Amino acid sequence: MSQLRYKIVFDGSLMPDASLDGVKSNLASLFKSDLTRIDSLFGKGPIALKRDLAESEANQYLSVLQRAGARARKEPDLAAALSLLETDEEKAAIATPVEQASQSMDCPKCGHHQRAAAECSACGVIIEKYLARQALLAESAPAQATTRRPETQPSPYMPPRADIDPQAGQVGRLKANSFNGRIGRLRFLAWSLVLMAGFAVVFAALSAVTLVSETLGGILVIAASVGMLVISIQIGVQRLHDMGWTGWLWLLNLVPIVNSLFWIIMLVVPGSAGSNRFGPQPPPNSLAVNILAGLFLLLIAGGLLAMFASGFAILAILGLFFDQLVSGS
C-alpha cells in the first residue's frame, strides 16, 4: 500500500502580526522568485504550493512558510496517495531498468521529470487535458503547429517551484571551542582580541609560577600556548565557514607571506547571505562585539602607523649619517 502523501495549500491568509508586504517579500526570497509571481498567490483562493510530499517534508515546508508569515496548511494529496501507480520503492523492487525508464515521464508543459502519472506534481496540470487542448490549438492554427514547441515558460498563475531553504530565518549557536558553526568578520575580530587578552593575563600569572618552579611554569606555559592555538584555529575555521569555504584553508596561515594576505582576506570577505552548507547564519552582532572589533581595528591601525613612523625615523637617521659622511669627506 502506498504511503500517504501530502500537499501544502495556501489561500492568502497571513499569520498574526504579519504584514502583507513583509510576507510577500519573505516568500519572494524563499522561492527565489519575483514579486509579480508572488502576488498571484494572493486573492485567488486556495492554491497548492507543493505536492506529493512525505509527512516530514510537508511539516518542514509548513514550518518555514509559517515563519515567513504565510498561514499555510498541510492536506493529504489524494491524487498522489490514491494513485494506482506503484511507488518508487515498489517499482525499484520489481522493475528492470528498461521498465523503470518507461514508467517515468516529462511534463509536456513545464518539463518536470517524474514518475508516470495523470497529473504533473510540479505545475499541477492534468496531462491528458493539456495534450488534448494542444491538439485543438494545433488544428485551429496549422501554420503555427509546425513551429510550436511545448511550453517551457511557467504560467504567471503557477505557484513558484523553487525549493525553499529549511533553515531560513534561523541563526546558529555560538561556540568558540568548536570546529563547527559560523562567525562573521566583526565577531572574528572581537573573539581574537579576547583570546589574546586572556592569554596575556594567563601568561603573566604563569610567569609568577615560573619564579617558584621553572619546570612547572614551563609546562603550564606550553599547555596554555597549545590551548590558545587550538581555539585560534577553531575561530578561524568558523570564519571560513561563514564565507562558505572549507576550514582546511586555514592551513594557508602556515605559509610565509601568504598568511598575511590570507588574514586580510578573512577580515574583508563578507559571509554568505542566509544559510550555507556549514549551517545557518550567525546571530547579529551585539554591542560588545562591535566595541571589541572597533578596538581591535584601532590597535591594528596604531600598529601600522607606529611601524611606518619607525621606518621613516630610521630612513631619516640613515640620511643624516650619510650626509655627515659626505660632508666629512
Rank of each mutant, 00 (worst) to 15 (best):
residue 101 A to T: 11
residue 8 I to H: 04
residue 34 D to Y: 05
residue 172 G to A: 07
residue 131 L to H: 05
residue 211 L to D: 13
residue 172 G to W: 02
residue 237 V to L: 04
residue 60 Q to P: 00
residue 30 L to K: 05
residue 17 D to E: 15
residue 220 L to E: 07
residue 89 E to H: 08
residue 296 F to P: 00
residue 290 N to F: 01
residue 235 I to C: 08
residue 90 E to K: 05
residue 220 L to N: 02
residue 110 C to T: 10
residue 215 T to K: 07
residue 193 L to Q: 06
residue 50 K to R: 15
residue 313 A to G: 10
residue 97 P to W: 10
residue 152 T to I: 06
residue 243 M to Q: 14
residue 316 A to T: 09
residue 119 E to Q: 13
residue 61 Y to L: 13
residue 292 L to Y: 06
residue 253 N to L: 14
residue 36 T to W: 08
residue 78 L to A: 09
residue 157 Y to F: 15
residue 199 F to R: 01
residue 300 I to W: 12
residue 320 L to S: 08
residue 327 S to G: 00
residue 65 L to D: 08
residue 257 I to K: 00
residue 316 A to M: 11
residue 151 E to H: 02
residue 5 R to A: 10
residue 267 L to R: 00
residue 70 A to W: 02
residue 198 G to H: 06
residue 113 H to D: 06
residue 286 S to I: 01
residue 233 I to R: 00
residue 246 T to L: 05
residue 317 I to N: 03
residue 141 A to L: 10
residue 113 H to V: 10
residue 121 S to C: 01
residue 30 L to T: 06
residue 305 L to S: 12
residue 257 I to W: 11
residue 171 V to C: 04
residue 70 A to N: 04
residue 69 G to T: 07
residue 129 K to D: 15
residue 238 Q to C: 02
residue 34 D to K: 09
residue 34 D to R: 11
residue 58 A to Q: 08
residue 190 A to M: 03
residue 68 A to H: 02
residue 56 S to E: 15
residue 86 E to I: 00
residue 89 E to L: 11
residue 233 I to N: 01
residue 102 S to D: 14
residue 188 F to S: 03
residue 316 A to N: 09
residue 52 D to H: 14
residue 75 E to V: 15
residue 246 T to Q: 08
residue 136 L to A: 14
residue 318 L to G: 03
residue 213 S to G: 01
residue 45 G to T: 11
residue 145 A to I: 07
residue 160 P to F: 07
residue 100 Q to A: 12
residue 25 S to T: 13
residue 175 K to W: 13
residue 37 R to H: 14
residue 245 W to L: 13
residue 47 I to T: 15
residue 289 V to R: 00
residue 236 G to D: 02
residue 236 G to Q: 03
residue 107 C to L: 09
residue 329 S to A: 13
residue 285 N to H: 10
residue 189 L to H: 03
residue 194 V to M: 04
residue 92 A to H: 13
residue 61 Y to P: 00
residue 82 L to E: 15
residue 109 K to N: 14
residue 28 A to S: 15
residue 210 T to H: 11
residue 48 A to V: 14
residue 177 N to A: 13
residue 212 V to K: 10
residue 90 E to R: 06
residue 252 L to M: 13
residue 329 S to M: 14
residue 176 A to N: 02
residue 39 D to A: 09
residue 313 A to N: 12
residue 139 E to C: 07
residue 10 F to C: 08
residue 99 E to G: 04
residue 187 R to N: 02
residue 105 M to E: 13
residue 240 L to R: 05
residue 220 L to Y: 03
residue 307 M to H: 09
residue 73 R to W: 12
residue 281 Q to E: 15
residue 35 L to W: 03
residue 290 N to K: 14
residue 282 P to G: 10
residue 303 G to M: 13
residue 88 D to A: 15
residue 206 L to K: 01
residue 44 K to F: 12
residue 217 G to W: 03
residue 100 Q to L: 15
residue 250 W to E: 14
residue 128 E to R: 12
